[in-house]
Structure formats: structure tokens, C-alpha cells
Design a protein around this nucleic acid. Structure first.
Lengths: 336, 336
DNA sequence: CTGTTAGCGCGTTCAC
DNA sequence: GTGAACGCGCTAACAG
């Protein structure tokens, strides 16, 4: 009661005094693998609760332990899918008591300049997502963190990190199958450059199914996954006598651009003249004027899995550098 | 050279040794308003650069100074406008050496549970954005931070914080004027509940211009600013003999839903039967199948202003609790 | 203007 | 199983 409490902040000392034990016993009570008698443990926990004690994180970091900060390296939030994933991820992290801290990475140079921060904060984990070139940047950060997680960047085999990703190869397969089921004879593929691994995986899965079926496929590689890129690519693709009768776009943003090119610029009917499948299932794909069939990524599962990896790491103390593949789902709408 | 450096990390002690001064002089060199002779300052800076020294933030926080962490309280990133603003904001923060840390706030309860963290980290500033009820939550956090910033939540007069916001009242005026210019005679307004201040401001500006012109206005208040809400509201609005000939939607998401209701469900022509104006200028509004005229929010300016407030606070040491109003812009497309 | 001294709150040996 | 003592890296108050 009348005890002096420094700066209105409750410290382990305060708790020790109230519980009638030493300060180090309080510390041990809040440490994972420490040995404390059940009796005193209760005593300490009770006192802590009463005083509203929470271990000071700055002090804990200074003393050499990891903070509860989870660094998130992320690219531009322009793609709604990425924004959605970030949204879910930060929810899950918060549920587990972690603090998501954002590092926007636009260029590879950005990434380098962030490195010092990572070590300063002694983060529990670092999550890399939505960046490109994915492999290079991932590798760079994997070596800096104790529990690095590469989220939805595809299967990066030469990166020392826990890989959590949608199974983009099978996503591409789903897209091909949907088009084939509709009777597509001259399918085309609009994808991004190889450095963006996930797009390459989608494309590979797509081509795989087509190969099996003995169907040839036109391919167009674009630099960006934007509306404009999809629009321009489609115009190029259809420029000629015998254009494709089905197009798989590497993501929904491009599919939106493609749809506008097809219907508005070219005056074609979808899906009658050309069928379309996108990827991600962003809100825009469901819009009444588009209703694009697409491959939905399991955002919730991706976020949940990533966080569970961190929780496991905290409890076991060992980094499990496994690859988790999460299955996407075909959403049938009006373009197939 | 052969000096022992603890844990491979460069400390102020190391710098002091190399520069041939005391540790506290090093500290002062890196403190804003401290007095150090020019000669030794150079010496210290040189040594620091050579060793690659960066002050340890955990230690600095523990010693009672503010960290470089800027807390961002934010609601669901579902609205692309919010994602865009966050994107730009984190860029600007990083440019100034701040560390954006995300606190997702979904419910008012969330907000309370976050309070302890805020004080733990001794953040330079806390930015509140994209939440509702805006006034209550803002007030709650304003009292917790030394330099609270309320970003784009409208003009909150009873909150002790720096207010940076789009001038939503004049945004609403622009919308009304655009509709009037097109000859609208029976305008309607779809807006959100009063607790979301910005929507109320937009609505007020809209009504103001209409009042001046002596034009009556139907109004419909919805609970959410979603596509579905806009869709449903429009159906309700048009249900009757003498429906509106122009609709202003409180945001673009709702406008998209409204467009689909108008054209697809009701078979009406836009803008010939009904003109439409949205708000925000999200990417979806520019989509070929919609091309919605809208009020564009100055995202870049909002982000830049918020960060400059923090920088000013750091240099002057005094919190400038001013309100900054940034003007929106009417983007004319094919729905007016 | 400068160096010395004393904490900030916590984790961690070490004796007991 | 427990408590006393030390150190993490830095800032602040005090002498000089």
C-alpha cells in the first residue's frame, strides 16, 4: 500500500515485496523453464495480478532475452490480397501477445538498411512476405533472425527459414483444370517474371496439367502484377488471327485489367469468346461487373500457421525449419 | 583494433575509447539539445562511423527516453484506401528513422488491452487512424501518448491531439456541386452512422451545398461502409415511384455496390438515369467497368503531414496540437 | 564544456 | 529451492 513505487510503474521488486519473496524468484516465475515451488509461484502470481505487473520489455531485451516484437517485412500494400493477409496476420499475432512491427521494403537497398533494427530489437521472429526478388531478400533476412518465416513466397528450397505458403503449383493446376473442363482448346497464360517465385509456381502447375492433356499454351510474361499490366498483356495476346479462347492470369488484379481489355476494348464476350481465371480472390474479383472465377488463397490458414510456428518456437526453443503447403480452392463464378 | 567488444555489438563505450573521450560525451553527442564542443563532436562522430555504432534502443528506453517506435492504431485493412494510407505512412516514417508498429483495433475492448504496450515502449508518438467510434477511441489514446496524432478521422474538437485530416466537409461540398452541375434535381445521400465522424462531415458538406441551392435531399444511413451495404442501400433508395436521379455514396466501396444495384439489378443507366459520385478514389473506382466519379483523398499529403508533426515534436520538444485540414479533389469520370 | 557516479528493470550466475 | 550480487547500454545529475 504505502510502498513507494518508482514512477507509477509496477516492477518485479514491487511484486517481490508484496509476495514476501526475493525479486529473482519473481523473475523465475515469469521464465519458461525455471524451477519454483508451487506454493510461492501462486503467491507471486497473485501479487502480480493484484498490482497489475507486466515485465518490462525494454529491460528484458537489454538483459539479453528476446522481445515480443515480430518484424514483418513487406512490400507495397497495393495488392488487396497482401493487405488482407497482413490484416489477418496482425490479428493472430496480437492474440498471442506478439507485437507486429512493420518494415516496408520497396527496394533491395531498403532491405539492407533495415538489418540493424532487426538485431537491435532482438525480435522473436521475422516474417518476410509480399516482396520481390523473393529468394534473395528472404535469404538475406533468414540469416539474421532466429526464427525466420517466409510467408506465401512459394517453396524456396535454399532458404534457411520456416516456409509457409499456399501451394501455388496446385493452384495453377486447378486453374488449368477449370479451363480444360470448359473445353478450352487454345489456353494462354499471363504471368510475372521468374524472380517472383510464386508466379512461376502457378505457371508451372498450369502448364503441367496442360502438358498432361496434350494441350499447347501461349505464355506472356509481364514485369508487374498490376491492372495495367494485365490490360496491356491481353491486348498483345489477342492481337492476331487465332487468339486464345481461355486465359489464366497470375493474379486477380491482372485479370481485372484483362477483362476490361477483352470486353471493352476488344468487344469480346466472357466466357463465350474467351474464358478467364484469376488468382487470389480479392474483393474486386467478386464485383458484380466482373464476377471472375479465381483461385482463392487460404488467407486465414496462412496467417494462423505462421503464428503457430512462432508459438512452437517459443515453447520448444527449437526452430522448426519446415515447409508448410496450404491448399488453395477454385472459386467458380461467371468467367468459366 | 584489438579492443574487446562485448558480444560483437558496438557500444558507446567502444566509441568513447576510440575517440579518447568519456562515454557520457558520446551520449551527449547523440542527444538533441546537448552541449558538446565542435572539436570533440567531430571526433566522436568519426569514431562512431568507423565502428558502425548505433545507440541501443532498448537501453535508451530503459533509461527513460522515448524510443523511435511510432504506434499505429488501425482498424481492419479491408478498405483499400486505408491500406494505401498505411502504406504511404510507413514509407514516410521509415524515411525519418521511425519504426511503425501496428496495433490492429477491431473492438473498443481491443483498444483498452493495448494501452499497457503503449507505455511500455515509450513510443515517440501514437497515430490513430481508420477506427470507429473515432472520437471515443481517439480520446482514450490521446491521453496516453505525448504526441498523439489523429489521422484522417475528421475534425475532432474535444480530443487533445494533433489532428491531420482530409477536409471532408469540403469533400462533401465538391460532390454536391458536381451533381448539381449535372442538373440533378432529386439527389440522395448514402452515408454511415454518426459515430464515424468523417462520414458525417462529408454528409454535412453535401447537404450544405444542396441547402444553399434550395434542393431537397433523401438520406440513408447504413451501419457499414461495405460493398454489400451500398448495394442494399441503393435498392432501398430506388424502391418507389419517384427515386433519386443522383446519389452520393460516403465511400467508393459503397458506390461500387450501388453501381451494381443500379445497373445490374435495376437495369438503370448511369449517369443518364442516375448519376453517381463516390469518395476516396480507390483503385476499384477507376476500373473500366465502373469509372466512378469520386472525391480523391490526398493520401500522400496526409502521410507527409502526420510525419512532419512528429519530426517537429522531436526537434522542438513541444507538442503542437493543431488541426491540419487537407483539401480533397474532385475526379470526374463517367458517372456524372 | 567535460568526466564521474548512479540508476533504469530484468536475467543470471553463484553461493547458501 | 532460494536469495544476494552483478551486468546489459544508456541517460541524467552532479562535480569539476
Amino acid at each position: 500500500m504505502g510502498k513507494k513505487i518508482s514512477g507509477n510503474r509496477v516492477t518485479a521488486d514491487d511484486v517481490a515485496r508484496v509476495a514476501g519473496v526475493s525479486r529473482s524468484l519473481v523473475s523465475r516465475t515469469f521464465t519458461k523453464g525455471a524451477s519454483v515451488s508451487e506454493k510461492r509461484r501462486k503467491l507471486v502470481l497473485e501479487a502480480a495480478r493484484k498490482l497489475g505487473y507486466e515485465p518490462n520489455i525494454a529491460a528484458r531485451v537489454l538483459a539479453g532475452k528476446a522481445s515480443n516484437v515480430v518484424g514483418i517485412l513487406i512490400g507495397p500494400l497495393l495488392n488487396p490480397f497482401l493487405a488482407d493477409l497482413l490484416d489477418k496476420l496482425s490479428d493472430r499475432l496480437r492474440d498471442e501477445g506478439f507485437l507486429p512491427t512493420l518494415f516496408k521494403v520497396s527496394t533491395e537497398g531498403d532491405a539492407k538498411s533495415i538489418l540493424p533494427f532487426i538485431s537491435q530489437y532482438n525480435m522473436v521472429s521475422t516474417i518476410v512476405m509480399g516482396i520481390s526478388p523473393s529468394a534473395r531478400v528472404s535469404r538475406m533476412f533468414a540469416s539474421q533472425s532466429e526464427m525466420p518465416i517466409v510467408l506465401n513466397l512459394g517453396v524456396l528450397r535454399d532458404v534457411e527459414a520456416a516456409i509457409v505458403t499456399t501451394d501455388h503449383f496446385s493452384g495453377g493446376m486447378l486453374a488449368a483444370q477449370a479451363l480444360l473442363d470448359r473445353g478450352a482448346e487454345r489456353p494462354a497464360l499471363v504471368t510475372r517474371e521468374v524472380e517472383t517465385g510464386i508466379y512461376e509456381e502457378r505457371a508451372a502447375g498450369f502448364r503441367h496439367v496442360l502438358d498432361q492433356a496434350g494441350v499447347a499454351c501461349t505464355q506472356l510474361v509481364v514485369a508487374e502484377g498490376s491492372y495495367e499490366a494485365g490490360h496491356a498483356a491481353t491486348l498483345t495476346l489477342m492481337d492476331g488471327a487465332h487468339g486464345p479462347d481461355a486465359v489464366f492470369f497470375g493474379n486477380d488484379m491482372m485479370a481485372l485489367g484483362g477483362m476490361d481489355a477483352l470486353r471493352r476494348d476488344l468487344g469480346l464476350a466472357v466466357p463465350d469468346d474467351v474464358a478467364v481465371v484469376g488468382y487470389d480472390d480479392i474483393p474486386g474479383a467478386a464485383l458484380g461487373a466482373y464476377r471472375i472465377s479465381t483461385i482463392r488463397q487460404p488467407v486465414d490458414k496462412l496467417a494462423a500457421k505462421a503464428v503457430s510456428v512462432i508459438v512452437d518456437f517459443e515453447t520448444t526453443g527449437a526452430a522448426d525449419l519446415t515447409t508448410s503447403l496450404i491448399s488453395p480452392e477454385f472459386i467458380s463464378r461467371e468467367t468459366t
